[in-house]
Amino acid sequence: MSRLETQLPGLTLKNPIMPASGCFGFGREFSQLYDLNVLGSIMIKATTEEARFGNPTPRVAETPGGMLNAIGLQNPGLEKVVEQELPWLSQFDLPIIANVAGSQVEDYVEVARTISQVENVHALELNISCPNVKTGGIAFGTVPETARHLTKMVKEVSEVPVYVKLSPNVSNIVEMAKAVEDGGADGLTMINTLVGMRIDVKTGNPILANRTGGLSGPAIKPVAIRMIYEVSQQTDLPIIGMGGISTVEDIIEFYLAGASAVAVGTANFANPFICPELIEGVEQYLIDNKIDHISDLSGRSWKKDVKRAYHCS
């Protein structure tokens, strides 16, 4: 077994590094740049029952070490994703994680039921944390009982394991994690973006047409690390960690906090070759530091009873 091969509910991954949902479309654009087979998986763009145009532009604004986005879940709708995007992706040896979104419980259930039957979809990522839609999204991800109920309803219809994507815009992240665990979640992905805003000092108006947006990028990494550190000690669910990863050291840090796999989001925009570079880089890091398997690092920051297998160089 390689140092990177990873087993998670529903997922046998060549390596635990994948592009995060919303930052990679359905893979078509990046397939012009490199062979997608090098990836562990792809978390495809959020899919809703009906096609969505999303929000007016401007949809992005930069911040120090980060960016705000308010795309608004633009996607071609369930039918086209199932009939066009997923079959196109089946040419690659990739277990796909399908991000499922909706405005009400019934929407999530319908999308989950259909998309989980597609052969190359090996897991769902339940999007209860998008801050850029008027209904649904984050509305399901900030009240524990609502999140638990939605998870339970989706679990009843899904043919594949369900990971729930947690929002950092809550006062108690552990409570949210436990609620979706109670609802039957098979894993967690965290974190989604933090709600933020920028105002143009010349016009006095918010830069984003949607006014608020989701903050991503290196600026939010410490928030993600803290939340994974807390949650991984309080639940048994595996965590796919995300939030500002752009270097090999970032990935190591996510593992030390308690992640079992990682996703790369905003960094794909600054460097579209970042995922293959990080996959190579992490493998080299493990070799250089004599670490047999990347999972040996998971939770090392708090597993004080385990003998440290390596020393940070």
């Binding site: 654009e29 401007p58 949809r59 925009f269 579209p272």
Partner: peptide, 17 residues
């Protein structure tokens, strides 16, 4: 001209009707 994210069509920042 539009504010862009990725520049390659993946992020959906620069769409128009």
């Amino acid at each position: 001209e539009e504010r862009m994210g990725c520049g390659i069509g993946a992020c959906f920042a620069c769409v128009c009707h």
